[in-house]
């Protein structure tokens, strides 16, 4: 290898890693702009079938730190009282009639439709993914994300980030083999309590569910300090008591 070629490779590697480092910082800022580190939220999930038929679910969600998420279904009546807990890679579902939590996986979906459990009980992106490549394309950053472990639902993400607000515009989710599983579209910038300004609507479609669409609408996001014990199997059936 000629000297100038070696210098070129070395410089591009350095620049690449610097960009990845910057990319990780960008990703952390994106996470904080989407939600506070610990918060409570109210969301509606809407599954839309190809014929336009809709099914709606309302969820109360609590999150603390990097690894704790709990959700409670408030409606419809058939799902009311169901709750889910995520502690790092562990996920459980509590169904009132069954009366005890059962372990579930990130790829399953407790609501049907395009959103799966990892979408509904999502941890911060920077916790599950590392930025491998960052591109600056004027008004947007384009981040290529790689899962930090094999237990994460999607192996790779391609995230378009609005440079001005540092929130995602679009995320494509891929398997390890490079197959596109779904695309998330972030819409309707909204200012919530505590001054959080972020897209209130996340739409998703998938080549695996031709013609189907699912929408997640944030109605309220608010900072909240929570005890660690809220995120335990013993408290899972009682989450409604702290609403």
């Amino acid at each position: 290898m000629k000297k100038w070629q070696f210098i070129l490779v070395a410089v591009s590697l350095c620049v690449g890693s610097l960009w990845a480092e910057d990319g990780n910082e960008i990703l952390k800022k994106v996470d904080r702009n989407l939600t506070p580190e610990s918060f409570e939220s109210y969301r509606q999930l809407i599954n839309i079938e190809p014929d336009g038929k809709k099914r709606e679910f309302v969820l109360f969600t609590l999150k603390k730190g990097n690894d704790k998420v709990a959700s409670l279904f408030l409606s419809p009546a058939s799902e009311k009282g169901r709750s889910t807990l995520r502690l790092d890679e562990n996920m459980w579902l509590f169904i009132p009639d069954v009366g005890k939590p059962i372990r579930i996986t990130s790829l399953q979906s407790v609501v049907g439709g395009v959103f799966n459990n990892s979408d509904i009980m999502r941890l911060d992106y920077h916790v599950e993914y590392a930025v491998e490549q960052t591109e600056d394309s004027g008004d947007e950053y384009l981040l290529d994300l790689k899962a930090r472990t094999t237990t994460v639902a999607y192996d790779r993400l391609r995230m378009r980030v609005d440079k001005k607000n540092l929130v995602p515009i679009e995320i494509e989710c891929f398997t390890a083999s490079g197959m596109l599983i779904k695309t998330l579209y972030f819409k309707q910038m909204t200012t919530f309590d505590d001054g959080i300004t972020r897209p209130a609507v996340i739409e998703t479609d998938s080549p695996l569910y031709e013609g189907f669409k699912s929408i997640m609408v944030y109605a309220k996001i608010q900072k909240r300090e929570l005890a660690d014990e809220v995120f335990t199997l013993t408290f899972l059936p009682k989450i409604d008591s702290i609403r």
């Binding site: 109210y42 969301r43 509606q44 309302v58 109360f60 408030l74 409606s75 309707q188 909204t190 209130a200 609507v201 929408i215 609408v217 944030y218 109605a219 309220k220």
Partner: peptide, 10 residues
């Protein structure tokens, strides 16, 4: 989407 309707349901 009317966010207040979601809060009413919740």
């Amino acid at each position: 989407i009317d966010l207040s309707q979601i809060m009413k349901a919740a």
